[in-house]
Design a binder for these strands. Structure first.
Length: 915
RNA sequence: GGGCGCUUAGCUCAGCUUGGUUAGAGCACCUGCCUUACAAGCAGGGGGUCGGGGGUUCGAGUCCCUCAGCGCCCACCA
């Protein structure tokens, strides 16, 4: 019953039911046999698994809408379309959340112990883990929920174990003591990617290290050679100057380094410098890493707290001295005065002590990048530590080649360069984390010294037979399991049918900031373990920002909750708004302070579609609709025009989607549907549907309307699935055509060749420009809205007369023109030339009160002339021009110019009315 | 320090790959309409020297150089 449709779209009334119907219909699911047995071409996307504890934010909203658009489109094209959903256990993030929960109970994870803590996390995850997936359903995501995976599922554990052991066997995983990024709050190692640099306004302190007396001669020589960093203290002692941004680390210095070729310091190499505050002396060494051009050309070396210094120590044999505890307090290795101090407190204390003894040579303001933990924001401490690493260079090679030779492509294209640059400079990956939540490292240690790396949990040491094996306490970086996602979700390392059918996937859509964390590593793992790329195309979506251009984030509180948008305005409104804004390579700005306004465009469009459908359902009536082919002879110009246009719109939509131009896809259809179907075709077809006297015209209109809406709804469905599916299901169906079970699986329109009709499009364009021009003139000359006029129309294309004749009734409907004469005319009235060269004249004598209109215009002219005279007088006044603020004068000039323009137009009008 | 990108209407952005009608959209604004699909609408309208400068060309928002401002990524310069 079409009367039931309310005049405003109520998304809540249709969306949840629609979604349930799709799920119940099994449309989201596809089995391997569709590919392996039926031979259908697959189309596969694996979802970027959101953190299991996450709540949906606008970034998810955008990314998953993008994926759903592609998925729905391909599904309609008949591909065996699979979108695999799931969540990530998100090691640090999840552990932090549960630790915070514990903290509210006054507990620490140590109070529970490892097992109980992990159990607690599982409880939490089991309770809340499904939330974000349910939220995806609300925005319409058509994932195959039967295949939902979690990165800690048994299958995926097996994959992780296999990959770790396999890489270890290939010597691509090793354990060693190196400087790694350490978060003193999370108490774990981090990868380079997890330590995010933040530009910070800091200081560079210059410190003096006194030289022993036997080096004073060499020091004096160095000074003479131009080494300004060598000098004498008040008491006559010579010293060297070194610089640092982290003075507290000087307590762990074990040397000072210069470049081997730096002649200035030649005599000082080998000298033992006094390290202030510590009572230690440290040697001056030569190492080629030191840049003689930079600063003093002399560097303090802190091997246990700096990556470069560690390497220098490796080459020069300097000692390693760790002066900090894991939680970044000064350790027992530091002088007593500083022990137990927090690092920044120690920084102040060290500086104060050095200052006291005259060892601070100066301070410069210094802006540099300070690494922070990507999870908690704590300043990362470079720390000497034994960890597990992956050798990345060999793995990167095929993944780099894949980008170079186009096996993997990127949208926007410029990410290709970013990806390749990173791949070319790839560094080893620290994968062990001192956490409890995650994939435990599959390595056991026997008291006999044997290290066992095994696919199966060992029960006894293969070397000594001992059973007192200890498993490595650490877990793997979350991204170690995420990188296997494209094949682990299909059951690898087992050779499953799913794997055969659905690997490799096609598109990977995600945020640019995890290109290195995740995308690059998936590609490397794909080549290493599957022998080919996990996906051919990487789509990096826009960043969602607020109206001030700031990234939406929890901490800024400037986020928009997609569920709130769905609730208030509908999923369709949200989807259209963000897709239409997601132009390649740009960001999306949404006003978080006025959500309704931010999504108004999408909401209005969904409502427009709704009303167009309502109109059709009411206007079509109950009778059977004939197939288009059966009414072919009765089609009128506007019918042939709109059929041709819907064909063109379909071609454009397909082209846009093929190129990942989702913005063009959405906007193109918006303009087609609103600007052509609604503004023109529906307006023209109204009277025909209501006119029972001309049955042939009415039937042609009904057939055309049904056909056009069917097509349009199909094209629109990927971006606004709910409103289109709802209306489509109610649309009457032409006789003789079989009807798909649901719009979600209706064929994507592609047979457009036979529908194109350039002649009809050209003729209709001529008609449109005539209507627009008549409307404009009517408005300009104050012709009342209901007032009919006659027009004269001459010149232009040969067939223009025929066009006007066939659309005569339409001209009356759209522009209130009841008489068209083909003869030239002039006199009192309005005249214009159309784009196609035809001349248009509207006699206004007797239509409007010409004398009154003339008087009205004259009055207006008088008024404007007065204003203009005033402006001119001001501008003629030297004092005003010289003394008034510049912008006031400029404004006056601008006003004058505007007034002159307006006057010219009015005078032209007057001339027409006098004729 | 390297690499990349951006600057077009009041705001947010398309358009540049392949130079060529009058540079577009949404929102905002002005005018007139509650015309029975839709006022979340209809009709009409105003608003841009395409960041500055230079060059190539018959022709530049589009290609090249340069300057300025903004942003992103990478990096061990103490």
């Amino acid at each position: 019953m079409t009367q039931e449709l309310p005049p405003r779209l109520e998304p809540r009334a249709i969306e949840p039911a629609r979604y349930r119907a799709w799920q119940d219909g099994g449309y989201f699911h596809v089995s391997a046999s569709a590919v392996l047995e039926e031979g259908r071409e697959p189309f596969v996307i694996v979802i970027p698994p959101p953190n299991v504890t996450a709540a949906l934010h606008m970034g998810h909203g955008l990314n998953n809408t993008v994926q759903d658009v592609l998925i729905r489109w391909r599904r309609m094209q008949g591909r065996a379309t699979l979108w695999v959903p799931g969540t990530d256990h998100a090691g640090i993030a999840t552990q932090n959340v549960v630790e915070r929960q514990l903290a509210t109970e006054g507990l620490h994870r140590d109070d529970l112990g490892r097992e109980e803590f992990v159990e607690r996390v599982w409880e939490f995850v089991t309770e809340t883990g499904g939330t974000i997936l349910d939220q995806l359903k609300a925005i319409g995501a058509s994932c195959d929920w039967e295949r939902t995976r979690f990165t800690l599922d048994d299958d995926l554990r097996r994959a992780v174990r296999e990959v770790f052991v396999s890489l270890y066997e290939k010597d691509l995983i090793y354990r060693g003591e190196y400087i790694i990024n350490w978060c003193p709050r999370c108490l774990t190692a981090l990868s380079n990617e997890e330590a995010e640099g933040e530009e910070t306004q800091g200081s560079l302190w210059h410190l003096r290290y006194p030289l022993p007396e036997d080096a004073w001669g060499a020091a004096a020589d160095a000074r003479k050679a131009g080494a300004e960093s060598v000098g004498q203290l008040d008491d006559g002692r010579w010293y060297l100057t070194v610089s640092t941004t982290r003075p507290e680390t000087m307590l762990g210095d074990t040397g000072v380094a210069v470049h081997p070729g730096d002649g200035r310091y030649e005599g000082l190499v080998g000298a033992n410098v006094e390290l202030p505050l510590t009572g230690r002396t440290i040697p001056v060494v030569a190492d080629h890493h030191v840049d003689p051009e930079f600063g003093s050309g002399m560097v303090k070396v802190t091997p246990a707290h700096d990556k470069n210094d560690f390497e220098i120590a490796g080459r020069t044999g300097l000692e390693l001295l760790d002066v900090m505890t894991p939680d970044a307090h000064m350790s027992d290795a530091a002088p007593e005065a500083f022990r137990g101090m927090e690092r920044f407190e120690a920084r102040e204390a060290v500086l104060a002590a050095l200052e006291d003894e005259g060892f601070v040579a100066g301070t410069d303001a210094h802006t540099h990048s300070v690494p922070r933990c990507y999870r908690c924001g704590t300043v990362v401490e470079p720390r000497l530590s034994e960890q597990w690493f992956v050798s990345m260079k060999p793995l990167a090679e095929p993944a780099l080649e894949a980008s170079r030779n186009g096996e993997v492509t990127f949208t926007p294209a410029h990410w290709k360069k970013v990806y390749e640059h990173w791949m070319e400079n790839i560094q080893d990956w620290c994968i062990s984390r001192q956490l409890w939540w995650g994939h435990r490292i599959p390595v056991w240690y026997c008291p006999c010294g044997e290290q066992i790396v095994s696919r199966e949990d060992p029960t006894a040491c293969p070397k000594c037979g001992g059973e007192a094996l200890e498993q490595d306490p650490d877990v793997l970086d979350t991204w170690f399991s995420s990188q296997l996602w494209p094949f682990s979700v299909f059951g690898w390392p087992k050779e499953t049918d799913d794997l055969k059918a659905f690997y490799p996937g096609h598109v990977l859509s995600t945020a640019p900031e995890i290109l290195f964390f995740w995308v690059a590593r998936m590609i490397m793992m794909g080549y290493e373990f599957m022998g080919e790329t996990p996906f051919r195309h990487v789509y990096l979506h826009a960043t969602v920002r607020d109206k001030y251009g700031r990234k939406m984030s929890k901490s800024l509180g400037n986020g928009i909750d997609p569920l709130h948008v769905v609730e208030e305005l509908g999923a369709d409104a949200m989807r259209y708004t963000i897709v239409s804004q997601a132009a390649v390579g740009t960001d999306i700005s949404l006003d978080h302070e006025n959500v309704e306004a931010a999504f108004a465009n999408g909401r209005n469009f969904a409502n427009k579609i709704w009303n167009a459908g309502r109109f059709a359902l009411m206007g079509l009536g109950q009778g059977p609709v004939r197939a288009l082919a059966d009414v072919g002879d009765d089609l009128r110009l506007e019918d042939r025009w709109i059929l041709s246009r819907v064909a063109a719109a379909g071609d454009e939509a397909t082209r846009s989607l093929e190129r990942f131009r989702l913005h063009d896809f959405a906007e193109g259809l918006y303009h087609f549907f609103w600007g052509e179907v609604c503004d023109w075709y529906l307006e023209l077809v109204k009277s025909r549907l209501a006119d029972d006297a001309d049955a042939r015209s009415k039937e042609a209109a009904r057939s055309t309307l049904v056909t056009v809406l069917d097509r349009a709804f199909r094209l629109l469905h990927p971006v606004v699935p709910f409103v289109t599916a709802e209306l489509w299901s109610r649309l009457p169906w032409p006789e003789g055509r079989s009807r798909p079970a649901d719009l979600i699986v209706a064929d994507w329109p592609s047979d457009h060749e036979s529908w194109g009709d350039e002649a009809a499009e050209g003729s209709f364009r001529d008609f449109q420009s005539l209507v627009v021009e008549v409307r404009r003139l009517r408005k300009e000359y104050g012709v009342g809205e209901g007032q009919r006029v006659g027009i004269h129309l001459w010149g232009g294309p040969d067939d223009f007369g025929d066009v006007i004749e066939s659309l005569g009734g339409a001209l009356d409907q759209l522009a209130r023109v009841d008489r068209v004469e083909a003869e030239p005319s002039s006199g009192v009235g309005a005249h214009a030339v159309l784009p196609n060269g035809a001349e248009l004249f509207i006699p206004l004598e007797g239509v409007i009160d010409v004398a009154r209109e003339r008087a009205r215009i004259e009055e207006e002219v008088g008024k404007l002339e007065g204003l203009l005279a005033g402006v001119r007088a001001r501008l003629a006044n030297q004092q005003f021009v010289e003394n008034a603020p510049e912008e006031v004068v400029a404004k006056a000039r601008e006003n004058g110019a505007q007034l002159e323009d307006q006057l010219a137009k009015l005078r032209e009008k007057l001339a027409g009315l006098r004729a």
